[in-house]
Computed example of a mutant assay.
Amino acid sequence: MPKSILHITEKINKESGGLRTVITNLNDYLNSATGFDSSIITFAMEDHDAFQLFDVSKPGAWLYSKSFKNYLNQLDTSNTILHLHGVWMYQQYISSKTAVKKNIPYLLSSHGMLEKYLLQQGRLKKTLYCKYILKDILKNANYLHAITPIESESLFRLSGGNKNIVEIPNLIHYSSIPQEVTYNPNEEYILYLGRFHSVKGLDILLEAYEKIDNKKIQLLLIGPHSELKESLENRIIEKGMQHKVFFKDFVSGIEKFNVFKNAKVFVAPSYSEVIGMVNLEAAACKVPVISTYNTGLHPNWNTSGGILIKPQLDALVSALNNAVNWDTTERIARGNQLADFVLQNYSWEKKGVLWEQLYNTL
């Protein structure tokens, strides 16, 4: 009888960014493996998604759902495992409480939500929540899943010493990247693709771009509309840089891979992240990637074609100056080297078995 894995997350729509990719990839992988029946339970998804959707009874900050509570109370516990994604919502609270009551094994992935930078946002509320609610959720979990060593330390501390912490990095389906798309050295631009959020370091990216030596290379910024994006667009207009800095809302399919592969370098100077999926995707497209130590990427990224820096202006200016001066041979060699590094260390093809091993211990 296959193990029934229920992935529980408050939202898995496009607004959830890389979290959507992480959870759906895990769900797909398990359903293709032997011995698992995996499904996703959520409270916000896209119209075309075929997940199990529950209504929110009170659309407040905590997303209370009476129908979801009733569902858990009636759940068949035989061979069932709950996998909680996230930490702050009613969904994790009631799932943990029900799992303890009905003796259902559960594991929790915090997905970087407990990193120091993010805990400082709304600090008082989060401190109280950690002390009176979250600590028990973490303590009672059969396993806590960490994406990086830094996250492992945070989970151990906030759980009051739960030692059942398993570290598995975010993974990418390497074989899904089209290999026929190749770098066009006639295209010269620095690329950012992702959410426009303050945590992404876009403030220092724009400032660093203004300071680099090469005044001809363009900057392409791609991501959904937000207040921050609108603010950055206005800033570019005020500085008269519309001919050098370009914005796009969305790219997909082969267009997305072309945008990646033709970039001179991909840049994600995040202040806090847990191995952002876009870093892996860009690297798998054989693009050198500049990111930060704060993202949890392995330090060998620095010696495998990519560049890791502290999220500071001077460091980013130096890294960009280095990257834009690569000739075509070095740029291609770095991209190939980084792609192989991602295949070996961050791909489902090489590391997906770690998830099978984890679930099979429950």
Rank of each mutant, 00 (worst) to 15 (best):
L134I: 02
K116Y: 08
V289N: 06
L297P: 00
L221M: 12
E187R: 09
A50W: 02
C285H: 00
R123Y: 08
W88G: 06
K248A: 15
S231V: 12
D55K: 11
G240Q: 04
V259H: 08
V199W: 07
N322K: 14
P185K: 04
K215P: 00
L155V: 05
T34G: 07
L144P: 10
W355E: 01
F196E: 01
I177W: 13
K126Q: 06
I137Q: 11
F250A: 14
K351P: 04
K14W: 09
M277L: 13
N142T: 09
S78W: 10
Q218M: 08
V181P: 04
L338W: 06
E153Y: 09
H298K: 10
Q344C: 05
F247L: 09
N140E: 14
D136P: 03
N70C: 05
T34A: 15
E273P: 04
E115M: 15
S198D: 11
N300P: 01
N170D: 02
I12K: 02
S96F: 12
E281F: 10
G305A: 05
M241A: 14
S39F: 10
Q92W: 02
L144I: 08
F51H: 11
K215F: 04
H111W: 09
D28E: 13
W62C: 12
K3W: 03
T182E: 14
S176H: 12
P185L: 00
G306K: 02
L63I: 05
Q74W: 01
Y129Q: 04
K139Q: 13
A146I: 00
L155K: 06
E167V: 03
K135Q: 10
N13S: 15
S154I: 01
E227G: 14
G160T: 11
V274R: 09
E15P: 00
I222C: 11
L72W: 08
E281I: 06
R334D: 00
E210M: 12
T295Q: 08
L202N: 05
L205N: 01
G335P: 08
W88E: 03
N31D: 04
K261W: 07
V199D: 09
